[in-house]
Design a protein around this nucleic acid. Structure first.
Length: 629
RNA sequence: GCCGCGGUGGCUCAGUAGGUAGAGCGGCUCCUUGGUAAGGAGCAGGUCGAGGGUUCAAUUCCCUCCCGCGGCUCCA
């Protein structure tokens, strides 16, 4: 037993029975068990001695088992709705589960029918019965389903082939499973879609049903509430509602920043620019278009052409730049360079165009035109480490300002790479050292680096736990060679610089999208398009309100007057919906003693404070780039 | 790009078993002069995504295209 106690039980006693006897109060949470650490069903009969332990939803394994059982239940339901569907695989996922079927396209009606079948089957409490069968028996059992036959053929020769029986439905499965379908009361189907088998173009089209499952209906309800809140935070809806940005049919993936959205972009740029100045960067602007030959030199022509916008002008082909690097390379190479100039840090915030696949563009988080807080650092090998450390420090400062938590991913040498393995190893070791020193968690993605060098990607999780890549730090040993870049070192010899391609926020488009979802549109005051809205109670207070607005505007604040003929309640509501962080009300009471009634967006209560304090509070919060509370 | 599903006033949506459309919010006008999330009335606003086909007649049925949504793949 987990508590080191030893028990003697009759031969063939199910492990579940032994565990419930051992911990009767917790027995309801036991989904499966471990016998000598191997996952087994609760019905697993004990015939030899060994260690036993329960598996609950709190364990990673327990989640997986519940999810997996839920997937099987869905398969059973699908078979009832569309009898000639051929189930393929139904794994658990990070969030829940999915099951892919080789079948005709699902319709919304099918999906409804599957949902109600699932609900009914939960009520039946049918057991998941395990059975180990000979390979020949399995082949016979699944002869109508070529996918399952393939899995049987792929199974290792010694491996036992197990099937699970649920009512009349039999599925090939390693298990284990929860004891019966009654354990799946917290199941919920999220949706269906078509996917390509193996993820490769031209593969077989499968129908995927996705869902989530929890041990109890209460946990499911909590999840659904959270999910509903997340949907209300969708940056596409917020962007429209708050008039931050828009798209038109004629420009798929090309964002329009509307006046209010542009305020956010400019404030973010200012935030980044202040840092660049402090850290010794220079800013440049290079052309948006280059002749084909530049991209041939940079390698884009070979590796990225299909993602570029091209245009033929005067019998030459020009490409719209998808990245800023070629321009910076040309600047570095425009004259002889000395080691005394390094590190040379060139920042460029130019519009980039990338012909992203049409099916992938998504609001602001995936667009075809974007601007990054981009820079290229020309450094010596000895300077790489201090530059990367400085970048990691800046990332910490930046993301903390936005109250975003982040993690790093280190991508190492891919199969196809250029350069010397020894150089790669030194570079990877340097990056790892920097990451270790940062104290921020990171994971390593072996073989995921670019062909020209290893990289660190920055991932930010939004409030729903979805992960997004924002910034990146990429070491590049190749592009300087391709552009024949050199500097003269203290030894009098010419050397190729190393280039660090880096962005911190990534693209302003994606970053604003993430920030909106993270804050539900309640941006910190320094970023809010309108920081303060002044609401005079009645007409006779309008003049004083106007004076307050004028005063705060002169101090550089973004402030509006709300003097419509609507009731005060209506105007407060509008200000709340517009996500204005400070809502100031002026009436008789306030005019009497030069005070203001201040309501913070998202809170119910208002506080009354002297006008002078209001001004200082707002200015201070904005200057510190702080959140209100 | 691939698969599936959609596209009706500015927004969110209803509707038409083929006979050219409605609501709420928003906008405008008027009344109301308000005390912290919706005061009242009236008015304006739509070639029902685009093109083609079938039909006496198409927003509705069929085809093609465009755009969007959910996934796949890819990535800032």
């Amino acid at each position: 037993m987990p508590d080191e106690s030893r028990h003697q039980v009759p031969i063939g006693e199910p492990i579940g029975k032994v565990l419930s006897a051992w911990a009767p109060t917790k027995a309801r949470t036991f989904l499966a068990a471990r016998f000598d650490n191997a996952p087994v069903d609760l019905s697993f009969p004990l015939v030899t001695s060994g260690s036993v332990a329960p598996v609950t939803f709190e364990d990673r394994l327990g989640k997986e088992i519940l999810h997996h059982s839920a997937a099987h239940l869905v398969a059973k339901a699908v078979m009832e709705v569309v009898p000639d569907a051929k189930p393929t695989v139904g794994p658990g996922t990070e969030e829940g589960f999915q099951y892919d079927f080789d079948m005709r396209p699902l319709t919304p009606e099918d999906f409804e029918a599957v949902q109600s079948a699932v609900r009914r089957m939960v009520g039946l409490r049918e057991p998941f019965g395990r059975q180990e069968v000979a390979r020949e028996v399995a082949l016979e059992l699944f002869k109508a389903n070529p996918h399952k036959l393939q899995y049987i053929h792929e199974a290792a020769p010694g491996e036992p082939i197990s099937v699970y029986r649920t009512g009349s439905w039999v599925d090939l499965c390693r298990g284990p499973h929860v004891p019966d379908t009654g354990w799946l009361g917290g199941i919920h189907l999220l949706g269906f879609s078509a996917v390509t088998q193996g993820g490769e173009a031209g593969g077989l089209t499968l129908q995927r049903i996705r869902g989530v499952a929890f041990p109890t209906r209460e946990e499911l309800a909590a999840y659904l509430t959270l999910r509903k809140e997340a949907e209300a935070r969708d940056h596409r809806a917020l962007g429209q509602r708050l008039e931050l940005f828009m798209f038109v049919e004629e420009g798929p993936g090309f964002p329009f920043w509307l006046p209010r959205g542009m305020v956010i972009v400019r404030e973010l740029e200012r935030f980044v620019m202040e840092h660049l100045r402090a850290d010794g960067y220079s800013e440049v602007r290079t052309p948006l278009l280059f002749a084909q030959s530049v991209f041939e030199t940079s390698g884009h022509w070979e590796h990225y052409r299909s993602d570029m916008f091209l245009s033929a002008i005067e019998n030459r082909v020009f490409g719209v730049k998808p990245m800023n690097c070629p321009g910076s390379m040309l600047i570095f190479g425009s004259r002889a360079r000395s080691y005394r100039e390094l590190p040379l840090r060139l920042a460029e915030f130019a519009p980039l165009h990338r012909l992203e696949a049409s099916g992938t563009i998504h609001g602001m988080t995936r667009v075809r035109e974007l601007v990054q807080d981009d820079a290229h650092l020309f450094v010596t090998e000895e300077q790489v480490e201090s530059e990367v450390r400085s970048l990691l420090a800046w990332i910490e400062q930046a993301f903390s300002t936005f109250r975003l938590s982040w993690s790093y991913e280190l991508s190492t040498r891919p199969k196809q790479f250029l350069g010397e393995p020894a150089v790669w190893e030194r570079a990877e070791a340097t990056l790892r050292r920097c990451l270790d020193a940062s104290g921020v968690p990171y994971r390593i993605s072996p073989g995921e680096g670019a062909f020209y060098g290893p990289k660190i990607d920055i991932h930010v999780k939004d409030s729903m736990g979805r992960s997004w890549q924002t910034g990146t730090i990429q070491l590049d040993y190749q592009m300087p060679l391709r552009f024949r870049l050199e500097y003269q070192g203290p030894d009098g010899q010419l050397h190729a610089p190393i280039v660090i391609h880096r962005t911190i926020l990534g693209s302003f488009e994606r970053f604003v999208g993430i920030l909106l979802e993270h804050t539900a549109g309640r941006l910190p005051p320094w970023l809010a398009p309108v920081q303060l809205r002044v609401l005079p109670v009645g007409e006779r207070h309008a003049e004083a309100a106007r004076a307050l607005v004028k005063e705060l505007f002169a101090l550089g604040l973004r402030v509006e007057l709300s003097v419509s003929e609507e009731t005060l309640g209506k105007r407060v509501r509008s200000a709340e919906l517009d996500r204005v962080p400070y809502i100031a009300v002026l009436g008789d009471r306030e005019l009497a003693d030069a005070s203001v009634s201040l309501r913070l967006a998202g809170r119910k209560e208002a506080v009354t404070l002297p006008a002078k304090e209001l001004r200082e509070r707002i200015l201070d919060t904005v200057r510190r780039r702080a959140f209100e509370a």
